[in-house]
Write a protein that binds this DNA or RNA. Structure first.
Length: 460
RNA sequence: GGCCGAGUGGCAGAGUGGCUAUGCAGCGGAUUGCAAAUCCGUGGACCUCGGUUCGACUCCGGGCUCGGCCUCCA
């Protein structure tokens, strides 16, 4: 039985979707005014694993991940660059898709953009006004009236009064309460704007997620995810909006992934201490980055450190080395390891423990591969199937082991020629020459392995 | 200040009221022309102070330290 830590109740709960066999999930994606950084990568990978795993155990999953393609920062950045905002956002959407692909993140079933769903957004705002949860301010903005929603704060564990104590009141404030937040922002000169019953303007940040998730998945759906920094105010506001508008419970299980940290400090754009996915991919292979993300449980912090990426590299080499040279087969004989793997995954997607089960399977494969290759092949197939659920170990082992992060070294044919030459030296028992060639290759980052079936190599 | 979360062996990172996590690194052995890979074995830990208990790293309470949210942020 799968259990999921639900931030709404702060406990692990057995996972029971609204409709048996069917899971609807929504994840807050990115605001596209810049390149993805590691924090975005973590969200994408974490929920990609949730998606893959739910599917692997037989659920029919509809996965929606939105794109915020209109907001203050986008407008500001587009103005800085003197280009239409949609050119800016299209460029960064394309870049995000490339990064996601590289990391092995499956495309979600739907990827709605705020600008493509203005009618649904406007409809929901209208509904909130009708139901007494929102009001039009003097300047044409529309605000959510937090005092009208008694459960405000239930996700983040805050009370309106506590929040109010520390709230700042801006000069010229048009809100009734400092905590009220914008559903619709009246257009200022030279800003992108859409028509609405309240005049020209654009949606506030929070309303798009309520409108698009409800439109795609219904008033109530199963899983809503995102980074932990979205708990408050973003997700709190989504609950107020959706439940205020529909009168139905919004989300059954709230999941938030922990932060990526660097030097034990949150990695974020406002602190300016972030690495983009692209910068990291200049030095490490995409699957190493993905593996690194999976080495900690999704709710724990993930500290960025070169040593950890090196560790990921070593771990993947161990996996692929175990898979190498074994024929395709039906998964067989690994029941005990599969059981451990599933127990880990079903305990709130405990990927580090799931990986531990996979490593134990690796050892078993290596133990039996010599004496019983067919048994090893069945075990290897089981290992690959576990890898599928995590989105790793998808490549041909030999291809993986021979590929380099940056292949500016020797070509495969040069390597083969040198190995052949060394083979001759070995036959002649010219160990000095054989070792010299091996050292030469070593210097170029090539590791040789002499086995009973001849010499194999990999880029180390 | 309010609210959350965390403190595990050299590093990373799970977990459990009494039983080897796992990976990398170390040490010993097997294997190898020597290596590499692999296998076998092995040392090393649970922030601190109390409490509960036959027994706590694991439960409860205090303390200390660190991180996060309370403003845009994945």
């Amino acid at each position: 039985m799968l259990s999921i830590y639900n931030d709404l109740t702060r406990t692990k709960e057995p996972f029971e979707p609204l409709q048996p066999g069917k899971v609807n999930m929504y994840v807050c994606g990115m605001t596209v005014y810049d390149l993805c950084h590691l924090g975005h990568a973590r969200v994408m990978v974490v929920f990609d694993v949730v998606y893959r795993y739910l599917r692997s155990i037989g659920f029919d999953v509809t996965y929606v991940r939105n794109i915020t393609d209109i907001d203050d920062k986008i407008i500001a950045r587009a103005n800085e660059r003197g280009e239409p905002f949609s050119e800016l956002t299209n460029r960064f959407i394309a870049a995000m898709h490339e990064d996601a692909d590289a990391l092995g993140v499956l495309p979600p079933d739907q990827e709605p953009r705020a600008t493509g769903h203005l009618p649904a957004i406007i409809r929901m705002i209208g509904r909130l006004i009708e139901r007494g949860h929102a009001y039009v301010a003097d300047n044409g903005d529309v605000y959510y009236d937090v005092r009208s929603f008694p459960e405000y704060g239930k996700l983040s564990g805050k009370s309106i009064d506590d929040l109010e104590a520390g709230a700042r009141v801006e000069p010229g404030e048009v809100k009734r309460d400092p905590l009220d937040f914008a559903l619709w922002k009246a257009a200022k000169p030279d800003e992108p704007a859409w028509d609405s019953p309240w005049g020209q303007g654009r949606p506030g940040w929070h309303i798009e997620c309520s409108a698009m998730s409800t439109e795609a998945l219904g008033d109530t759906f199963d899983i809503h995810g995102g980074g932990a920094d979205l708990t408050f105010p973003h997700h709190e506001n989504e609950i107020a909006q959706s439940e205020g508008a529909t009168g139905h419970p919004f989300v059954r299980y709230w999941m938030h992934n922990g932060f990526v940290r660097i030097n034990d400090e949150k990695m974020s754009k406002s602190l300016g201490n972030f690495f983009t996915v692209r910068e990291i991919l200049e030095r490490y292979r995409p699957k190493e980055v993905r593996y690194f993300i999976l080495t900690s449980q999704y709710r724990s912090p993930l500290n960025y450190d070169e040593e950890h990426l090196e560790n990921a590299r070593a771990a993947l080499t161990r996996f692929y080395t175990a898979l190498r040279g074994l024929p395709d087969a039906e998964p067989k004989g690994a029941e005990e390891f599969e059981q451990a793997f599933h127990a880990a995954m079903q305990d709130d997607f405990n990927t580090p423990e799931a990986l531990a089960a996979m490593f134990e399977l690796v050892r078993e494969i290596n133990r039996v591969r010599q004496a019983a290759p067919d048994v090893a092949a069945g075990l290897a197939a089981a290992l690959r199937r576990m890898g599928d659920a995590l989105g790793i170990l998808q490549q041909e082992p030999e291809a993986y082991l021979r590929a380099a992060a940056d292949d500016d070294g020797m070509s495969d044919s040069e390597i083969d020629a040198l190995i052949k030459k060394r083979q001759q030296a070995k036959q002649d028992k010219d160990w000095a020459e054989a070792d010299r060639i091996r050292d030469e290759l070593q210097g170029a980052g090539i590791v040789l392995e002499d086995g009973p079936g001849g010499t194999t190599w990999r880029r180390g």
